[in-house]
Design a protein around this nucleic acid. Structure first.
Lengths: 292, 292
DNA sequence: GAAGCATCATAAGATCATCTTATGATGCGA
DNA sequence: TCGCATCATAAGATGATCTTATGATGCTTC
């Protein structure tokens, strides 16, 4: 038997919501109806589509069905758009994942322009999570650091984010009076985004060839991380694009020539949707800022 | 109200079949049910989707719905394929338009290779018609002479078909003993595909700078047109690729250096279907034969 | 560990969309 | 003019799917 569109859309809703009951609410149905739809779907394709845990976990078959459902949603939005270009009640919603630094520095301007006919859901997540969100179908596209496309996705390079180690002149005078050496770097406090943020460690390794454990402060917001550094909380890695926005003289590079390049890529589902196309080209346009 | 997938698929079936009754048969329904589905659809989107003539003619809104339906069909096939790679009962059907010369000379070999997991419907049509079939959603892809993509389609260049004016040595001796001039060209009979085939006229214009009206024979089949020329029915424009297959000496060029280049493009719907992707790459591979 | 809550499954009947049957109108060709 | 093909509509039949009701399970909280 064939998978019914309704069934696929239901499974997609369950995946985004995480539970049957939440999906039922979203679909304006009783939980029982949702349960029955899932059962019917599983009977139709002859195997389970998800594991009943919280939140639900899709089986491979379930993932295929959800992909179908998501594409159907977009197709449907496209059709509505063609039929009633005026009525904007049901403009499609595109969900994308952008890491915090990109969102803060370059991603937003282009996206704003694309938002005429699209409703955006921007998820601010780090690398690991962003690929997971793509895989689960929660997001349609993502800015990632890995260029190899997920199965079912296409990937295109966006450019390179260049990070530099910076601090205030006062901070440098206090901690690096004897120069930026293994000794001083081991004691000077560093400000990072969170405990997964390894940019600083990569710099330290390149600089000293050993693993250092300086004091660390975590500031999990890009703008505020910049502020923290400007206030002398520590030194840290900031993108060139963010540095360009600071008043000159407020921060200084630890080692002027040193920098870390993080290549960024746009990954999106291989599906046809004018809405998604809009967003993709908007991101690409924004990423012009990443070109040297 | 939203367009239901069933309704879109129904309209698509009506379009391919031409009448409600034929569509009903294909869908294993009564004509009445089909009629009611169409009515429900028209009420849902608030305007007619087709004109009730034979065969039916879609309105712009109807065309949008049919496109949606066709894409849904492909999506659905893809899903089935993913869920049951073994059961090949419902391999997707891809419809493409290829002009006669391309079909005869270069298009088929690659397509044959792609046919493992795809059922092909090849429509042999000339330029005007092929774009129309694309637009109406009857075909998923087409080999066209125009490179500017239709709305909703993507286009990629395939290469160039080079045509040369040829005839038999005997024909040349009889008609062109005084050389290939405006005078001789005006009287020597020419063989063309049909009355829309303007390759010969383009050659004549380029050769003489005036419009000539030589006697014309129409042979609406590529292979047979070649045979006709070999039998001395007239001179005509044949693709290099076709000439390569003829025994040497059977035909000779009217003006050895003269040739007409027809650039070819592959246009297809911008949608994600592994089946369509297969066909597209097969066509592109075949088109290697068009590279100089 | 008992109570409370959230979650999913199942049975059974209600509801509603959609199909079939039956009939009629229209247009076209023989 | 008849016959045929086509599409529309009314009305009842059908059947899928929903809601209601209830129960099982597992996790949290006190």
């Amino acid at each position: 038997m064939r998978v019914q569109p309704e069934q696929a859309l239901t499974l997609a809703a369950i995946t985004t919501e995480g539970t049957f009951d939440a999906a039922a609410q979203r679909l304006h149905l009783t939980p029982s109806a949702v349960s029955q739809r899932v059962r019917a779907l599983e009977i139709a394709i002859g195997r389970p589509v998800l594991r009943r845990v919280r939140p639900v976990e899709l089986t491979p078959a379930g993932e295929a069905v959800v992909r179908f459902g998501r594409q159907l949603e977009l197709l449907s939005s496209d059709l509505s758009d063609q039929l009633e270009p005026s009525e904007n009640g049901s403009t499609p919603r595109i969900t994308l994942v952008v890491n915090s630094d990109s969102l803060h520095t370059w991603a937003l301007p282009g996206l704003v322009k694309a938002a005429d006919h699209v409703q955006l859901t921007i998820l601010r997540e780090d690398q690991d999570h962003s690929l997971e969100l793509l895989r689960r179908g929660t997001a349609h596209g993502a800015v990632t650091a890995t260029g190899t496309p997920m199965p079912g996705c296409s990937s295109r390079p966006l450019g390179v984010m260049r990070y530099r180690p910076v601090c205030t002149p006062a901070f440098a005078a206090k901690w690096f009076a004897d120069g930026v050496t293994g000794t001083t770097l081991a004691t000077a406090p560093v400000v990072t985004y969170d405990d997964k943020d390894d940019l600083q460690d990569r710099y330290l390794r390149r600089q000293c060839r050993t693993t250092l454990q300086p004091p660390r402060h975590y500031v999990p917001a890009t703008h505020e991380l910049g502020q923290a550094i400007q206030l002398g909380l520590g030194w840290g890695m900031l993108p060139d694009l963010q540095l360009a926005g600071l008043d000159s003289g407020t921060v200084t590079a630890l080692t002027p020539s040193a920098h870390l390049d993080v290549p960024l890529h746009w990954q999106q589902w291989r599906l046809t949707s004018t809405a998604l196309d809009h967003v993709a080209s908007a991101i690409t346009e924004s990423a012009q800022a990443l070109q040297p």
